[in-house]
Every structure is written in structure tokens, then in C-alpha cells.
């Protein structure tokens, strides 16, 4: 499992970074989304992989922390999902506004000089 997930994180990150370095705004925004998946999974995996033990417990009684998945990375990732949604939205709007103003969708605001 671990090897699969870490490979997956690597591939998501690599695709994201490659897109991040591309010249068109749409490529960059897709890249950011992919990168945020990778980063979210990475943070999540810092709590190790636990199957079938969500951090939802009985009401009262003794709690054995090892019987549940680590809730902390989950809380962090939940926040990260929200913030990455917000940045994606903001970037999208900046992207189309800059497209309207500069007449190009190149990230530099102008086509590369040949």
C-alpha cells in the first residue's frame, strides 16, 4: 500500500510541477490542482495509513488512541482542501482578468519573443 501511495504522490506531484512550469495559464491552474492533491495526500500520509478505523469513537468510556486513525493530519488536510479551493478560484479569476487585459493567456502577460 505504502509503495503504491508514495508512487502515486510522486506522479501527481511530478505532473503538477511540470504543468506549473508551462507557459499557459490554464496549464498552470491544472498543475496547481494536481499539486494540491499530491500535497494533501502527502500531509495525510504523515499520519500513516490505517484501514477501517476512522477517528469517530463511542460516546464515553476509555479511548485507546492506537485503535483510531490519527485525526490531526486529517484536520490539517481538511483546512488545506478549503484553502486550495480558494486559491484556485482566485487564480482562475486573475487568469481570465489578465487574459482580458493583456490579450494573451501566457503567464508572462506577453507572448515569448522569438
Amino acid at each position: 500500500m505504502e509503495i503504491v501511495l508514495s508512487t502515486a504522490i510522486g506522479i501527481l506531484a511530478a505532473s503538477g510541477i511540470w504543468l506549473l512550469l508551462r507557459p499557459r495559464t490554464f496549464q498552470v491552474i491544472v498543475g496547481l490542482c494536481l499539486l494540491s492533491y499530491a500535497v494533501n495526500l502527502f500531509i495525510f500520509s504523515m499520519g500513516r495509513l490505517t484501514v477501517g478505523a476512522p477517528p469517530i469513537m463511542a460516546k464515553g468510556g476509555f479511548v485507546n488512541p492506537t485503535a483510531y486513525a490519527d485525526p490531526l493530519p486529517q484536520a490539517l488536510v481538511l483546512t488545506a482542501i478549503v484553502i486550495s479551493f480558494a486559491t484556485t478560484a482566485l487564480f482562475l479569476v486573475v487568469m481570465i482578468a489578465s487574459r482580458g487585459m493583456t490579450g494573451t493567456d501566457h503567464v508572462d502577460g506577453q507572448e515569448r519573443e522569438q
Binding site: L5, S6, A14, S15, I17, A38, R48
Partner: peptide, 16 residues
């Protein structure tokens, strides 16, 4: 991108 992705994957694997 490939090197970076490989790096991130290795860190993730080692920690997990």
C-alpha cells in the same frame, strides 16, 4: 519535475 516527484515520493515512502 521527475526528480522533484521522485524526491517527494521517497520522502513519503520513508516516513510512511
Amino acid at each position: 519535475a521527475s526528480i522533484s516527484g521522485f524526491g517527494i515520493a521517497s520522502i513519503a515512502y520513508v516516513v510512511m
